[in-house]
Design a protein around this nucleic acid. Structure first.
Length: 422
DNA sequence: TCTGGGGTCCTAGGACCC
DNA sequence: TCTGGGGTCCTAGGACCC
């Protein structure tokens, strides 16, 4: 038999992270908003019970929020990232192999254990005691089955947060309980297709002929069927893969009406992208810029601008990226009258990433950009705080900057954010 | 008034080659 | 009259994930 895999995920991760430091949030409805305070992306159980859906726009649920005194937070990624690292550190005490899958989920190698359930339970208690984060664990022969087990444990308190579904007989009993749309890898479109032919649960999908799965979906659907049958197709992978692209995109707090403002935002995004590249010791070969108007406003003029350019030689230099972004933005700018469009979102995408050492050299490999200046820039901004040194083209008005009206203190990473106790 | 951000993988189809 | 076949590479777009 293959090595059992566990997946551990945090309950309502962002909300639980907020609750660690503010006990008054426990037992009451809490939501955490997406960037720009747009949508609810995390909800406490109490908020879910009020009927607040995942991704609900704040302006559409305002009444409910006010009527029930829902506590509202802007997202505080600095805090969540730090809590996530602490949770992973506990997992690492319980298994030699951890695959960090997302900010709140890890796959764990649970091979060679005598009593997997006891092991998972003590891990769970330890995460709660040492970090304050409630987690749930699903265990099975494949990743997809482990996700199913986790889903069942989440919805049925009888399992106390741990379900080991390694036993096939148990899987026979439980898989009919998992709706087909809740299976890992089955999204809205595929769910629709499957339900139309009478496949409604994980047990149904497991029984689907492979050829039919391949024909209806892609190899991905075929793989999902095999995984449900207990045959691993998605490898356990605890080495971080080489990332292929990165993006910095933001909605604007207020609409951007002219080129200067859009370019200020793009300067900030390209600057941030360059910082991320240097932090990972990467260079990029392609840069794309885009900006668009509000798609939810059919009554307003719509425009999407987008241009891609090669970066030769490949670079992580802020000045190079900002210059390339400006060329793209100018080329994509609408040549109609100014201020016709209200742009609400802009972004910089980088592709063809390579480790700096593996970059292709030009004939004479003339040093490009200003590596020492970039090092100095990064050091100053690290020591004196983000955005201490910026390019002038980022501007000072920051009218495009996003809203975050409800952000909690960065309790674990910024001393000045800590509340003063008298 | 107000609707997120950052990823991965797969496929189809076009361009190009011999 | 009759006009191949089989590759590779690249890109755009779809679907999915959290």
């Amino acid at each position: 038999m293959t090595r059992p895999i566990a997946i551990s995920d945090s309950a309502n991760f962002y909300v639980s992270a907020e609750r660690i430091f503010d006990p008054t949030l426990r037992g009451v409805p809490v939501i955490v908003l997406s960037n720009n305070d747009g949508c609810a992306v995390a909800r406490s159980d109490e908020a879910k019970a009020l009927g607040i859906k995942m991704g609900a726009p704040l302006h559409l649920i305002r009444d409910k929020v006010e009527a029930h005194g829902v506590r509202v937070f802007s997202s505080n990624y600095t805090l969540y990232g730090d809590i996530s690292r602490r949770v992973v550190a506990v997992y690492e005490d319980y298994t030699p192999n951890v695959e960090v899958y997302s900010i709140d989920e890890c796959f764990l190698d649970f091979g060679g254990l005598k009593d997997r359930v006891a092991h998972a339970k003590s891990m769970r208690h330890d995460v709660l005691r040492r970090v304050g984060m409630p987690v749930r664990v699903g265990i099975a022969a494949t990743k997809t089955l482990a996700k199913c087990a986790n889903d069942i444990a989440k919805k049925n308190p009888i399992f106390s947060g741990v379900l080991d579904m390694t036993d096939p007989t148990l899987a026979d009993w439980l898989l009919p309980l998992v709706p087909v749309g809740d299976i890992w890898g089955i999204g809205r479109k595929t769910e629709g297709k499957l339900r139309r032919i009478g496949i409604n649960s994980a047990a149904d999908l497991r029984a689907m002929p492979l050829r039919q799965a391949r024909a209806m979906g892609t190899v991905m659907l075929e793989r999902t069927v095999l995984e449900l049958q207990g045959e691993p197709c998605i490898a356990f992978d605890d080495v971080e893969p080489q990332r292929k692209g990165m993006a910095v995109t933001r909605s604007a707090g207020t609409p951007m009406l002219d080129f200067e403002t859009v370019f200020e935002a793009l300067t900030a995004h390209a600057t941030r992208a360059a910082e991320k590249l240097r932090h990972h010791n990467l260079v990029a070969g392609t840069l794309t810029v885009f900006f668009h108007t509000n798609r939810h406003r059919a009554d307003k003029p719509q425009y999407t601008g987008s241009r891609t350019t090669r970066l030769i030689p490949m670079t992580s230099d802020t000045f190079d990226l900002v210059a390339a972004a400006k060329r793209c933005a100018l080329a994509a700018w609408p040549n109609t009258g100014e201020k016709l469009y209200a742009f609400t979102k802009a972004g910089v995408l980088l592709d063809d990433l390579l480790p700096f050492e593996q970059r292709p050299r030009t004939l004479f490999d003339v040093p490009r950009g200003s590596p020492r200046l970039m090092t100095a820039l990064d050091q100053v901004n690290k020591r004196f705080g983000k955005k201490t040194l910026i390019l002038a083209s980022e501007g000072m008005s920051r009218s495009w900057q996003l809203r975050a009206d409800h952000r909690s203190p960065r309790y674990t990473t910024r001393i000045s954010d800590l509340p003063v106790v008298r």
